[in-house]
């Protein structure tokens, strides 16, 4: 296996020593670039009480390229599609090599608290959100109960 950059070692060290509240991220045994993530749904959001599984992968070019992150738990969210892919600017063109795994996970958590149906990835969910927000939030709650317990 190729040498692991100092940067990744340091990030892993800090993530273990000083974890983000409500988020755990652990590198897989034998592959320090692949992380299993467990994220608590933020309080007073439709995802409250849920525990969501994600996978996070650091490509060879990291940190010049952003990490690849995907939800494994089914989500009802306008910026997350059926395959768990996430529409978030810092994971695309707004990525900066000075951002970290920690900041990425925090941004994803913030996205759960503040869905943005105007920049949708899942169009049907976004439409639902815009036409009847209450009902959409209710569906998101039900999905959380059903899939993220």
């Amino acid at each position: 296996m190729s040498m692991v950059p100092k940067r990744i070692m340091k990030e892993v060290e800090r993530l273990t020593k000083d974890p983000v509240p409500g988020i755990s991220a652990e590198p897989q045994e034998g592959n320090i670039r692949y992380f299993s993530v467990l994220m608590d749904g933020p309080d007073s959001s439709p995802y409250e009480g849920g525990h969501f599984r994600l996978e996070l992968f650091l490509p060879e070019e990291y940190p010049m390229s952003p990490p690849k992150v995907r939800f494994l738990t089914k989500m009802y969210h306008p910026n997350i599609d059926k395959l768990g892919r996430i529409c978030l600017d810092i994971l695309k063109d707004k990525w900066s090599p000075a951002l970290q795994i920690r900041t990425v996970l925090l941004s994803i958590q913030a996205l759960l608290s503040a869905p943005n149906p105007d920049d949708p990835l899942a169009n049907d969910v976004a439409e639902h959100w815009k036409s009847d927000e209450k009902a959409a939030i209710q569906t998101a709650r039900e999905w959380t109960q059903k899939h993220a317990k």
Binding site: P5, K6, R7, K10, P63, A98
Partner: peptide, 14 residues
């Protein structure tokens, strides 16, 4: 620049 005790690179952490 060089010779700065306090410098840390935010990208590679050197």
């Amino acid at each position: 620049k060089t010779g700065n005790e306090d410098f840390t690179c935010e990208i590679c952490y050197c």
